[in-house]
Design a protein around this nucleic acid. Sequence first.
DNA 1: ACCTGAACACCGTTCAAGT
DNA 2: ACCTGAACACCGTTCAAGT
Lengths: 226, 226
Amino acid sequence: MSQTRSRGRRADALSKDVVVHAAVELLDEHGERGFTFKLLTERLQTGAGAVYWHVANRDELVYLAADHVIGVALTGLSAEPGADPETRLRTLALHIYDTLDRHSWAAPHVIAAVTMPNTMLLLERIGGLLTETRLPAERHFALATTIFIYLTSVTAQDTARAATAEPGVDRDAMLGEEARRWAALDPATFPFVTRIAADLGHHDDRDQFATGLDLLLDGLRAQEGR
Amino acid sequence: MSQTRSRGRRADALSKDVVVHAAVELLDEHGERGFTFKLLTERLQTGAGAVYWHVANRDELVYLAADHVIGVALTGLSAEPGADPETRLRTLALHIYDTLDRHSWAAPHVIAAVTMPNTMLLLERIGGLLTETRLPAERHFALATTIFIYLTSVTAQDTARAATAEPGVDRDAMLGEEARRWAALDPATFPFVTRIAADLGHHDDRDQFATGLDLLLDGLRAQEGR
DNA sequence: ACCTGAACACCGTTCAAGT
DNA sequence: ACCTGAACACCGTTCAAGT
């Protein structure tokens, strides 16, 4: 159809949307480092100058691509009526986590500026849920940004680490090997790490994320009680 | 003396340590993006091949530089005897935060692998403090990694954002402008964000970090009580 | 063993020229 | 207004050659 990827020129006109869409695809496929203008112009069947007509530079393009990903994630989330704000906060956070996990290049950019349109929408969602709790209004700003920052920061790191690992290597095997290295350390200087080495073997990033989130929500509830 | 920076060749021999040291300096001065082998070889008064004799590639060099920064931060922290584990955990976290704030390029690399020697020492410190609390031993692994991840992730994002901002622009002025933009949004779609817009004006990243940390520690205490 | 520095492949960006 | 594509400056890395 219109999006032919064979050699030659493209039939239809370019647009900002088309460029951003192709960027998301290629970022998913090759990661932030592997994403180049060469790949982009090949897929779009066009020249470099054409891309620069629609976006200012590479940075802006990645920025737009990241915002697009968040936008899709937010619209894809159902309302979940009836549930209390805390569980809805949890659902929202894990949903964003999963989305960014599928687009591991995006997370580091999401937080960079709360200026991104859809990032602000995310903050709005979090804040709206906080408003429904019994927490004092003057704490809302601090708590909403805390949760927002926890969500985006930790997700960014988790996905960045996942992206670093070579694709061929099995994740469980890597953790197992690392656990063995921990166990082999000197217990005199590493009493804690050697003791918990075995736990590392069945570590799961997503569980870990949820644990931290629950700890935050526990803290929230403790403050609510006062 | 030996470290002359004028043109010509260097008098003393190169070493891994010397290379890493120069890298830390240049990363501090120019950031991760601005750090190039050209700058490095100029400062070291040597050729590119010489650097490659001591380190495998750019990635390894930045990795070593980041680990070095954490090492310095950990040795520079006093024992603080007498204080309870929770306040010592807080001191440790803020100390690391401040260090990484001074080397904003380092934070994103610290978490990438818990394999870095000094990063593991940091986890050890956190775990050691947790051991002194009344929290059940089987929770130690999950909680230590939670705090570790919170510390490194949030710091990474804070410093990354600080690094993105153009050096010339005043940070307070930027926040003020952003706050005005928030206030100008449509209250129908952004009820929360418009309401808290004023708070953004006196937002401080470090305070924000501490707030989140306290929330985590509150959650910890709540679990302790059970 | 350690270093030199030219050469290479690749990258983002620009711009005169076209439609 | 939108696109082409060669040209440019710059980057990390290699490697034959030196000491």
